[in-house]
Structures are given as C-alpha cells and as structure tokens.
C-alpha cells in the first residue's frame, strides 16, 4: 500500500528524473475516491518552474492483484497525449515500480467534479447541456485514429471477431459458474440472433461512464481511467454508459435517446441505422459480461466455501437484480423490433 508520507519523496525523485527542477517539492498528497482496483492520489508539485497539481494512478501493491497492466496503459496514454486530440488529461510520466515501489502513471489533475456527480445535482436545462457535451465528447474520442493504439492494446481482426468474442464471454461465464443459469444462456443466444449492423472499429475506452468523465474549469469533458481501452465497436462505450446509468442515474443518454444518438451520429459520421437507441441498447447488454463476471466469480467462491465475505453474500441478490435488467432489456428491444416491422408493413 502506498503511504502518502513515503510517497512524497519518491514522487519528487520521479519528477526530477522526468525533467522537473532539482528544487521540486511534493505536498498535499491525498487519496482520490472513485476507483475500485487502483490507487489514485492527488498531489501538488512546487518548484522554481511553478506549481502544478497532478494525479498518480498506481497498482495497489503486492498485497492486491492489479487486473490491468500500467505499462500498457502508459504506452496508450503517452501516444494519445502526444497526439493531443483525445479529450483526456495529459499523461506526464511513468514509473515501472523502481522508484514508487509499484507501477504508476502521473497525469495532470483536473480541477473539477465528476460528470456523474455534477449531473446528479443538475436541473433539466443543465442535464440537456451535459448530454449534448457527452455526445460531442464521445464523438471526439472515437474520431481519434485507432492506429495510435500501441501493439499491446487489444485489437480484433474484424468486427465479427470482436462481437463473437464478447458473446463468447457470456457463454464462458455460464459454463464456469457453480450452477446452470438459463438467463445467461438466453442473453448469449439473444445477442447472437440480434446482431446490429457493423460499425467501423475505433479506439474505445472500454469502461466509459459518467464517473470516468471529469469536468474541467473551462467546461471541457476530460475522460479518465483508460485501463480497459481497446480497439472495438464505438457503440460499446455508449452502451456501457447507459448500463452504468441504470444503477447510477441520471442517464444522460436516456434523457432523449433519439436526439442523443442523432447528435452522436452526425458528429461521428455514422448512419442512423448504425447508431440508434436499439443498437446502443444491444451494446449495453453485450458489454455487460465483464462486470457481471466479477460478481459471479465472487458468488461462486462463496458457494465453493472459498470465502465468507458478507458483501458477497449480500450481492447474491444483485444476480437476480441483473437477471431482471436483461430480461427487461431484451423484451423491450424485441417489442421495439416488432413494432418497427409492423410500421414497415403498413407503409
């Protein structure tokens, strides 16, 4: 575990190594709430060159298992920072653990609230403005050349391979669980049967939600926490954003899903056939296996007697809660498709 006191001198050494003046001093090292898996600390660096505030994103240390690779994340963030078009705080430097004791990345600090927290306290007019900004931010993200992604970034050979892999993840979850689950099998088959038209593969965030968007003082939305970035279908980011909003409202896409999709489609150059509320809803389900897998693995460990953590026992109810969400989503999309078929038949 990184202790703020010991971290201060290590950060000073890291900043000097990266070109800060010898008189640089680090102060105000404080944990930032939000992430589950990584240590996130804000700190101030003061030197004869000026005062700046940064954020350290680091692996949690030897006692915990980091689910993703900081070096790979750094390679991506460094490439995106050099390119300058991705709406994100600039990444400044990386340490492989030699100085900090654990691999970590230093980025510019964004002096503003999370978009989700801000939206939760906003009136209707502000929510509309935020939704428009979110569509623009997503379109800007997805306009970045996916060729910038380093070789370590997951990159499917085709759209079909990408979607096949995500559907296979649903099947694998069910196969590895401690009991058979017809809801998972239903979702996997439904996803196979309802593939939307393909979209060009882009660099996607992989865990896009309003909690991973910061509002800068100048009004820009800056996207953080890129550990799950990969080359994939850009609708996975819109879908995951809606998925998380089901648990953490408000749903900025759901305020006016048709309008949101139209704006994103206009900015991204994708057609209305490719980007619409139905295709976004498809991806909100498709991308859910990763998060649900974490839940199911905990439940399975409890069933096997490998853990007795109270939170895991409590979250057994979350499994049923998500069954309800998926059944509702697939039924709703089936109903929408049936209605569309009827309307086309009338025409």
């Amino acid at each position: 575990m990184l202790e703020p006191g010991a971290l201060r001198t290590r950060l000073e050494e890291l900043l000097r190594r990266e070109g800060e003046p010898d008189d640089v001093r680090v102060s105000d090292v404080r944990p930032i709430q939000g992430g589950y898996s990584l240590v996130t600390m804000g700190f101030t660096a003061t030197s004869s060159a000026g005062t700046r505030r940064y954020v350290l994103r680091a692996d949690p240390g030897a006692a915990a298992i980091a689910r993703t690779d900081r070096r790979a994340e750094w390679e991506l963030l460094a490439a995106l920072t050099a390119d300058g078009r991705m709406p994100m705080p600039a990444a400044r430097c990386f340490d492989d653990g030699a100085l900090l004791g654990t691999p970590g990345i230093v980025l510019d600090f964004v002096d503003g609230p999370q978009l989700g927290a801000h939206a939760g306290a906003s009136d209707d007019a502000e929510l509309g403005r935020l939704a428009a900004g979110l569509a623009e931010t997503l379109a800007a993200m997805h306009a970045v050349d996916p060729g910038l992604a380093p070789a370590c970034c997951p990159r499917p050979a085709s759209w079909d391979e990408y979607v096949d892999g995500l559907i296979a993840a649903w099947r694998q979850l069910e196969a590895e669980h401690v009991e058979r689950n017809p809801f998972l099998r239903h979702v996997a088959r439904w996803l196979e049967d309802h593939r939307p038209p393909p979209a060009p593969l882009r660099l996607v965030h992989g865990e896009f939600q309003t909690g991973n968007v910061m509002l800068a003082p100048d009004g820009r939305m800056l996207v953080v926490d890129w550990e799950y970035a990969h080359v994939g279908d850009p609708r996975i980011d819109l879908g995951w954003c809606q998925n998380v909003a089901a648990f953490n409202p408000p749903d900025l896409i759901g305020l006016d899903p048709v309008g949101f999709c139209a704006r994103y489609a206009e900015l991204s150059g994708l057609s209305a056939e490719v980007v619409n509320p139905a295709t976004i809803a498809y991806f909100s389900i498709l991308g859910g296996a990763k998060a649900f897998g974490q839940l199911l693995r905990g439940i399975a460990a409890l069933a096997r007697g490998e853990t007795s953590v109270l939170t895991t026992a409590y979250l057994v109810s979350a499994e049923s809660f998500t069954h309800r969400l998926w059944m509702g989503a697939t039924r709703q999309l089936d109903a929408m498709a049936a209605l569309q078929r009827q309307m086309e038949a009338v025409r």
Binding site: G34, Y36, Q114, G116, A117, G120, F183, G211, V244, F247, N248, S317, A318, S320, F321, T322, H323, R324, M327
Partner: peptide, 17 residues
C-alpha cells in the same frame, strides 16, 4: 424470475459514482 424477485424484494443495486 418472478420467484427470484420475490426473494430479493426491493433490493436496489447501487454502483459507484
């Protein structure tokens, strides 16, 4: 699903902000 819903009652899953 109806049986599962009867078991969990008014359970709400609240994620991180």
């Amino acid at each position: 699903l109806a049986h599962e819903e009867s078991v969990i009652g008014d359970f709400q899953l609240v994620g991180r902000g």
